[in-house]
């Protein structure tokens, strides 16, 4: 099978890759591009560990073919944090920071998917209710936390983002 040459915008950068026509975006991200932040839990759309944002929409990268992203824009968890500061600390996004502060992860396998899902939510709805957060995250399974800490972290991150002055808002 001939490989396909795909050009896409990945985390804000124009990139090229070669893929088999049947390869999922998830596999290309992890195995070809070595961006292993995006996880595979089920491969069938049930767990959300593979969540990425495609042209502004939250999708399961396990159910997206890599070939489909030609000319599109893909955001993965690797693109969420800001650059490392001069002091050497990683510029975590408030969503990531709040997940840490609330101890909203244990093994962390679901976390990249949760971060992307929450980012997609807060990009759309800066002030979600707890109910909205719970429904929005229905497609992100977490075996460890029991979800409660995740929900609290999300509400806290939303509040923080609303209160950040314009110039300190993450890109």
């Amino acid at each position: 099978m001939t490989r396909m040459h795909i050009t896409t915008c990945l985390n804000g950068e124009e990139i090229d890759f070669l893929c088999e026509p049947h390869q999922s975006l998830l596999h290309v991200l992890r195995d070809e591009l070595k961006l292993t932040g995006t996880k595979e839990g089920c491969g069938t759309g049930d767990c959300g560990a593979c969540s990425v944002i495609l042209d502004g929409r939250l999708v399961n990268s396990c159910l997206t073919l890599a070939a489909e992203v030609q000319g599109r824009s893909v955001e993965t968890v690797e693109g969420v944090a800001g650059p490392v500061s001069q002091a050497g600390t990683v510029g975590l996004h408030p969503i990531q920071q709040k997940l840490l502060e609330h101890a909203a992860l244990q093994c962390g396998v679901c976390t990249p998917g949760i971060v992307m899902a929450v980012k997609a939510l807060l990009d759309r709805e800066p002030d979600p209710s707890e109910r909205e957060v719970r429904y929005w995250l229905a497609g992100n399974l977490c075996r460890c936390t029991g979800y409660d800490k995740i929900v609290r972290a999300v509400l806290d991150a939303a509040a923080e983002l609303r209160n950040l002055p314009e110039e300190r808002q993450p890109a």
Binding site: M4, E20, Q23, E40, L65
Partner: peptide, 16 residues
């Protein structure tokens, strides 16, 4: 399990 070869059918071609 789950990390196993969960590629879609290996011979499919793609057209858009």
């Amino acid at each position: 399990a789950g990390g196993q070869e969960t590629q879609v059918s290996v011979n499919a071609a793609y057209a858009a």
